[in-house]
Amino acid sequence: MGKISLKQVTKSFGDVTVIPALDLDIEDGEFVVFVGPSGCGKSTLLRLIAGLEDVSSGAIEIDGVNATEAPPSKRRLAMVFQSYALYPHMTVRKNIAFPLKMAGIAPDEQERKVQAAAKVLNLTNYLDRKPGQLSGGQRQRVAIGRAIVREPAAFLFDEPLSNLDAALRVNMRLEITELHHSLKTTMVYVTHDQVEAMTMADKIVVLNAGRIEQVGSPLDLYRSPRNLFVAGFIGSPRMNLLTGPSAAAHGATTIGVRPEHLTLSRSEGLWPGRVTVSEHLGSDTFLHVNAGDLGTLTVRADGEVDARHGDSVFLTPQTGKIHRFDADGKAMA
């Protein structure tokens, strides 16, 4: 079981309030991702849950039991750190077995669990090496192995993939997601990368300046962002945001159209413009179009589109795909 509830939790460092009062429920078995720009308090929030920081006020419940005052070691949570935080003087085997040893589990039982974890994580051949002799991806797996052997109530991940190169990151993303499917244990995952959030989460918590901007499934957030911040943060490339007369025409202060919801035409359309840069990804083409008073718009077009710098194009937003925001940046119904 691993249901985590935060009740009116706040955190201040001296006079600086990092997290104003915040409520959040994480259901058992859920994969929850905290996402937001750097400095938004997402890591602090995770560390509060872990018990590595004291809450300034409020309560944290784990499976209905108040754990606010419990030390980290008593919360039945496992954590994977950004730097992996492996013990450099211990072999991989000893690293993975460490939490078991701390829990006073018999040596043969420790070995059995280490072997099982190593098999899942493809580490069987590396058990006698030290962390210094492993690649980044392998270290990452050791860190995960150390977390899973304890069979914790929940896993906490603090930007675990940010030190890996791009290709490896995609792999590990899949591995962690698969792990979640097989273990069905609650996972709380912190990242600044909205792609990781969208691809892995059951539930995304978007944080900004310590406040929760929106909580929802990836598609909820994509389809109906509650405000400008979420609209701009979720989705890649970013949503085009327009103000002025074109927004007023829809009765809003700001309107937003995602690049994939703009139709590209060479001959006719609502907004004329000139291509400044075209990025060919093969599968897609991203065109950056200078649309005069509207500013620069990004449009996602077919991979085979052959547009060049200076080409004249027309863009038309698809009906029903326009997001409207009021003067406070809140989404309008």
Binding site: P72, S73, A78, S83, A85, L86, Y87, F98, M102, R150
Partner: peptide, 15 residues
């Protein structure tokens, strides 16, 4: 010595 390692130990149940 990175502080994260000591925190990891704490998370691993070490007093």
């Amino acid at each position: 010595i990175p502080g994260e390692i000591l925190e990891a130990a704490r998370m691993d149940g070490a007093g």
